[in-house]
Structure formats: C-alpha cells, structure tokens
Amino acid sequence: MEKIIEILFNGLSMGAIYALMALGFVLIFKSTGVINFAQGELAMVGAFICYSFATMMNVPYIYAFFIALIGGIILGAVVYQVFFRTMVGEPLFSTIMVTVGLASILTCLAGLIWGHDVYSLNSPFTDKVIHLDKITFAQGSISTIIVSVVLFVIVILFFNRSLLGISMRGSAEDPDTAGLMGINVKKIHMVAWALGGLVAAVAGMFLAEQSFVRLSMSHVGIKAMAAAILGGMESISGAILGGIIIGVVEGLAANYLSGMELGNFHMGDIKDVAAFVIMIIVLMIRPYGIFGKEKVERV
C-alpha cells in the first residue's frame, strides 16, 4: 500500500513536469500551428539560466526562479521574431524542420556557454523530505505539484477570462476572421511563444531540481510531446491529463515490469517505451487524443 502511494506520488510529480511541457506544445500549436520540437531545449535553457544565477552567482533561489521565467519569456518571443514571423502559412513540415534546426542551435549555444558537464541546481527543497506515517515525500516533488497546479489554474483562467486570452482563442479558431475583427494576430503569436517559453522554463527548473542540469535533459521534450498528443493536441486540459497519465504509467512500468526476462527477450528498462506504447493504444481508440475533437472537413 505504501509502495503504491509512493509510486503514484512520484508519478504525479514527474507527470506535472510532462504536463507543463505538454502545455507549452499545446499553447504554441493551438495559436500558431507550429509543432515546436525545441520545447525540451527551451526547458533546458531555462534550467541553465536558473543555475547560473542560483548556483554560480549565489542569488537567492526565488529570484533566480523568476529571472529564469523572464528569460523563458524573452527566449520564446525572440525565437518567434527571428524564426517564425516569416514562416506563417508554410507547410507543417517546413515549420517542424525549423524547430528541429532550432533545437540543435540552442543545444550548441548552451554547450558553448555552460559546457557539457552535469551540474547541480540547489533549491530550498533539494534533498529535503517529509515523512508521513511510513511514506516518504520529497519536498521538491510536492513543490513541483503545487506550483504546476497553480500555473494550470492561471493558464485556464487566462484563456477563459482575460481579453488577451479570448482573442488568442479567437485567432486560433480562425486567424483571418480574427484579423478582420481587429485582433493583432502577429502579436498573439508572439504572446503564445512567450507563454510557451515560460512554461518550458518552469518545467526545466523543476526537472533540474529533481535531478541535475545538463544538456541532455532536453530529451524529456519528446515524451512531453507524447503527453500532448495523448491528451489531444489542441486541448489544455488534455495536455495536463496526458502528462499525468504518462508520468504515472512510467512509474508503474518501472516498478512492476522493468528487468523482467521473457525467454530470449530482456525487458530491461521499459519505462521510456511505456509512454509511447500507451500513446499508441490511446490513439487506436481515440484517433484525436482523449480531449481532441474530430475536425469536420470540407471538400
């Protein structure tokens, strides 16, 4: 019993990180129609910015956290201005390749600036635990879950209540009409990218807090993409649910399936593949993800 609670709890905290990353995918895709393969790299850069301030310059962690958030926003906006302003209306695949290229450029620059080593990001929660009965909860995981929930609520309120959020939804629905209604679609796109950069930076910092800061941490982006697809690429609540499902499934697979031997097949560490297997199974049943809506197509 304790074990399953611990597994679920850890799965939830990993899931919150996936959900944040997936949220970034959805925000950018919904508003601009670009699938950002560099989302993981944006998260990595966010974590490195936080590391530079918190660990290298000894700025208090909370300030470093907010500096990294601003860094994420600026990075997102700059990426849009430099790479995607002129790419509106280009085929899906060209934009995907631009983000793939962007990912390697970001990794290369981060490697030049911060080096290829592994670094430790010390936050107030690092290595601290709370014991409840017989179960151990890491403080880092608790803070990850709480902050993510707060962020999700803010994002959902933003899209349902604020003028900017509603105009973003409008221009996502039909950019041409939105433009005619007086909405500045280019500005909306930039805001979407900035928000995408922000949630990526948050995810990156939590990920770094649970482990370390390094270039290869960006690989988590691919699994977050699976989470976004699982939930339905255009749904914010779908991204959150998708992230949590993948986090929990991974935890369960690592605990109950990894290391098994099936004849001449070694199960090994099945955790990473489990995310994709779940994704495929869900797509078989619901081809547009859990919350995705089938589009009515006109001929």
Binding site: G101, L102, A103, I105, C108
Partner: peptide, 11 residues
C-alpha cells in the same frame, strides 16, 4: 559548433 552548423543550414 558542428551541431549548430547543421541546424543553421536547415533553418
């Protein structure tokens, strides 16, 4: 800069 060059050519 190898990796970055590759990305830059594509972009």
């Amino acid at each position: 800069l190898k990796l970055g060059i590759f990305g830059l050519v594509i972009v």
